[in-house]
């Protein structure tokens, strides 16, 4: 038995449907990242307020790139150094990693699902430059 080959219109609509799913994936990553970041910041501020009666914090993140900051936050969390500052800084880290994760997901989607090698290359270039910036010294 032979099956008819899909028409050009069917192929186009299938590609369009996959691209719409990519919209949903990218939108969900962005929304999830921002929400998680906000939750962490709100926890930090509420904790600070309940203990000191103020939500004001004042400290600088000096001389470290995002990767070093992530490692420092993980180290503090693992060693039980939980405090408002850890949550606020973690919220900032999550926020910064959100567009980065969106680019990683885009590289994966363009290559694995859409098989669009042109845009896999473009997004991979974006990913490489961003990765360089995160390791900046």
């Amino acid at each position: 038995m032979e099956f008819a080959k899909p028409s050009a219109d069917m192929q186009v609509s299938e590609a369009a449907a996959k691209e719409m799913k990519m919209d949903v994936l990218v939108g969900t990553i962005l929304l999830g990242g921002v929400l998680l970041s906000m939750i962490l910041v709100v926890i930090g501020l509420c904790w600070k307020w309940t203990h000191t009666g103020s939500v004001s914090e004042n400290y600088q993140l000096k001389g470290m790139n995002l990767i070093q900051l992530v490692l420092q936050e993980i180290h503090l969390a693992v060693h039980g150094a939980l405090r408002p500052r850890l949550f606020i800084t973690s919220g900032i880290v999550v926020l910064m990693l959100t567009p980065y994760l969106r680019v990683i997901a885009s590289v994966g989607y363009f290559s694995a699902i859409l098989k669009n090698w042109k845009y896999t290359l473009f997004t991979a270039i974006v990913l490489i430059v961003l990765t360089y910036s995160l390791f900046l010294r």
């Binding site: 962005l30 970041s37 906000m38 910041v41 709100v42 930090g44 501020l45 939500v55 004001s56 914090e57 004042n58 400290y59 600088q60 993140l61 000096k62 001389g63 470290m64 790139n65 995002l66 900051l69 500052r85 606020i88 800084t89 919220g91 900032i92 926020l95 910064m96 959100t98 567009p99 980065y100 969106r102 680019v103 974006v126 430059v129 961003l130 910036s133 995160l134 900046l136 010294r137």
Partner: peptide, 27 residues
């Protein structure tokens, strides 16, 4: 968002980001 991430990385390493000021601004 992606453009800002690249710039933020430079300012983070330069010590110009104060999380105490940034937190209410982000919210």
């Amino acid at each position: 968002g992606v453009t800002a991430l690249a710039g933020t990385s430079v300012y983070l390493f330069a010590g110009l980001i104060n999380p105490g000021l940034a937190a209410p601004v982000i919210l």
